[in-house]
Amino acid sequence: MSEPSPHDHLMSDAPRKAAERRIRNRALTIGVSVTPFGLSFGAVSVEAHLSLIQVCLLSLVLFSGASQFALVSIIGAGGSYFSAVGTALLLGVRNGLYGARVNTLLRPAGLRRFVMAEVTIDESTAMAVSEARTGHATRAFWSIALSVYVLWNLSTIVGALVGNALGSPATTGLDVAGPAAFIALLAPRLNTVRMRLAALGSGVIALVTVPFVPVGAPILIGGLTAVALLLVLDR
């Protein structure tokens, strides 16, 4: 599957085996770490009245946690489909950026790039970049991609089936599963005062507009206005 790396002839067997073991372990750890998110996504989706097939389709094809969660959260809150899909697409833009990085790093040929693009997400990109210097980037990318793809889809199905059996979101506390998951995902990115202010500003702008615009729209308004303000302030 992978092209021979320029370092292969320099490596004896032992370091290569060690690298393979390291990549396999990381792939499994990261795969397992996405399962709670997949479980809550499945559960929140059925609360938003998506059918099991629709929930599975999102995990199989859309395959990007933040976009999927945003889509079903906004639909579940009674927001417009325009806001729901718009927010999901804007959150998906970063995968395109990852794609450019992965493309220059791994140089996939022909039809393989279609498969590679589909599994280019936060985790697989980070892993490929971190193994770029060891010459194992391709193996790292596919290992993580496979592990996360399989476990994400399995946990989605389980979450959807379990969520179906639970009561209303408020009595089970499931109405904060999404926000809590996002706080955990955002934390590493909130490492500068600039980003913290952007996050806070975006939340405040969104809340201020809640009484005046259609449900779901405050998320797009808050998110886009905060980015625009950030760009103006950076000048």
Binding site: A199, L200, G203, G222, G223, A226, V227, L230
Partner: peptide, 10 residues
Amino acid sequence: VTLLSALIAV
């Protein structure tokens, strides 16, 4: 970051 923050707040 800003989109997810807005989503959390709302």
